Simulated scan of single mutants.
Amino acid sequence: MNHDRYDDDYIVDILKSVKVIALVGASPDPSRPSNAVMRYLQEHGYRVNPVNPGQAGKTINGAVVAASLADVDGPVDMVDVFRASQYLPKVVEDALAMPQPPKVIWSQLGVRDDAAAALAERAGVKVVMNRCPAIEIPRLLGEHAR
């Protein structure tokens, strides 16, 4: 798939089908984008499992933090990545190693690795890179979607 541009229908289908998200790189700092996006997703009906080894066992926005994707309790529909592009291949590998791999791997603004995306897609996982669901939800679904 060409990740330079996404059809709106592709994004809408993902946003409407996803219910549970693992947010890799979640921060407890309310001024950090990962924290604000996590809160936004929670407010829009998604269950978000924060993942951050340095915060494991603590809570972020009311949710207990897992140390890794392997430690997330239960299956997730989407892995949302707030890590630098250089870490995306490892996140994809970890996501694919989950007992029930996610349907979607979504990397945030500025995060892109085409080889990692190809690996996920070969495994049947949809990929969105260099986008933010907190921007796409109001743009495509309206502010009160879900």
Results as ranks from 00 to 15, higher is better:
Ile105Leu: 11
Leu119Lys: 13
Met129Lys: 05
Val104Lys: 03
Leu119Tyr: 01
Ser107Thr: 08
Val92Arg: 01
Leu96Ile: 10
Ala97Tyr: 01
Arg122Ile: 03
Ala117Ser: 13
Ala120Arg: 01
Lys103Met: 07
Gly110Pro: 08
Val91Ala: 10
Gln100Thr: 15
Gly124Pro: 04
Pro99Met: 06
Val127Phe: 11
Ala115Met: 05
Arg131Met: 15
Glu93Trp: 00
Asp114Tyr: 07
Pro99Asp: 07
Asp113Val: 00
Ala95Glu: 10
Ala123Pro: 10
Arg112Pro: 01
Lys90Glu: 15
Ala95Leu: 02
Ala116Thr: 00
Leu119Pro: 00
Met129Ile: 14
Lys90Pro: 02
Gly110Asp: 08
Arg131His: 15
Asp113Pro: 01
Gln100Glu: 15
Ala120Lys: 04
Val125Ala: 07
Asp94His: 06
Pro99Glu: 08
Val125Asp: 05
Leu96Cys: 04
Ala115Asp: 13
Ile105Met: 11
Arg112Val: 15
Ala95Lys: 02
Gly124Met: 05
Lys90Ile: 08
Met129Glu: 11
Arg122Trp: 05
Val104Gly: 09
Arg131Leu: 12
Ala118Leu: 14
Ser107Asn: 12
Leu119Phe: 01
Pro99Val: 04
Val104Phe: 10
Val91Ser: 09
Arg122Tyr: 03
Ala116Glu: 00
Val128Tyr: 13
Val125Gln: 07
Pro101Gln: 05
Asp94Val: 03
Lys126Trp: 04
Gly110Leu: 03
Pro99Gln: 04
Ala116Phe: 00
Ala120Cys: 11
Ala116Lys: 00
Arg122Asp: 14
Val92Gly: 13
Leu109Ile: 15
Pro102Trp: 03
Met129Gln: 14
Asp94Ala: 14
Ala97Gln: 03
Val125Leu: 07
Asn130Cys: 15
Asp113Gly: 00
Ala118Arg: 14
Val92Lys: 02
Ala97Ile: 09
Arg112Phe: 08
Val125Arg: 03
Trp106Met: 08
Gly124Asp: 03
Pro102Tyr: 06
Gln100Val: 15
Glu93Pro: 01
Ala97Thr: 08
Asp114Val: 11
Val111Cys: 14
Val111Ser: 13
Asp94Asn: 13
Ala117Lys: 05
Ala95Ile: 02
